[in-house]
């Protein structure tokens, strides 16, 4: 990988899905590797079931914390509708990793808007490198459905140029010891899916 290139990662989903934790682990690892890193996210209202996103950028020198529209290298979406919402941020040829999960937003539950049909097919149409991850199922396999965010992180990590050991160490330094084993296993399953 060329060192002066900036890499842009966008993590999106719904409040409560653990997006900010995965973004933190990613950013910690990158800082440890000596990169300049910037991370942008919006707190506040997002806690109340709104959409949540975190932008992580790394390279030699990063200026804007916000990624320009169309400049995302990796979109990691924890929910299908959120993947569609943010897809226009992805670079032509960029990578999309989507959790197989649909969470109806309030307007859909109220019947005033429709959940878009087959988001996955539409993503695939535009981005050849689209990977589907059954993160909930795999997290369950690892021992706790709440570790789905680590499954997703594993799937992303498999495509980034850092060793698995480095990831495992960073995770160990960031998640509570009680949940470490489940989180490591979840990460591992995500990594395998993306490599398959």
């Amino acid at each position: 990988m060329t060192q002066d290139k900036t890499t842009n990662i966008l993590i999106v989903g719904v409040g409560g899905q653990g997006i900010l934790l995965s973004a933190d682990i990613l950013a910690l690892l990158l800082v440890g590797q000596g990169f300049d890193v910037k991370q942008a996210e919006i707190h506040g209202m997002s806690q109340r079931g709104g959409s949540v996103h975190s932008m992580v950028r790394y390279g030699t020198a990063i200026s804007s914390p916000l990624i320009s529209r169309g400049d995302v290298d990796y979109l990691m979406a924890y929910e299908e509708l959120e993947a569609l919402r943010w897809a226009p941020f992805v670079k032509p040829g960029g990578t999309v990793i989507v959790n197989k999960k649909q969470i109806a937003p309030a307007p859909v539950a109220l019947g005033v808007a429709a959940y878009p049909e087959d988001p996955l097919a539409r993503l695939r149409q535009n981005f050849a490198r689209t990977t589907l991850v059954e993160a909930d199922r795999l997290a369950q396999e690892a021992g706790n459905v709440r570790a789905a965010n680590l499954v997703m992180l594993g799937a992303l990590a498999a495509g980034l140029p850092f060793s698995k050991e480095l990831w495992r160490d960073t995770i160990a330094g960031r998640v509570p010891p009680k949940t470490l084993e489940v989180n490591q296993d979840a990460f591992e399953l995500g990594w395998e899916v993306a490599n398959a």
Binding site: V14, G15, M45, S46, Q47, R48, G49, G50, S51, L81, E82, L84, R85, A87, P88, P105, A106, P107, V108, A113, A114, Y115, P116, R122
Partner: peptide
């Protein structure tokens, strides 16, 4: 992709 409905906080 303009048909993606909003997800307001509740």
């Amino acid at each position: 992709f303009a048909d993606a409905p909003m997800r307001p906080p509740i």
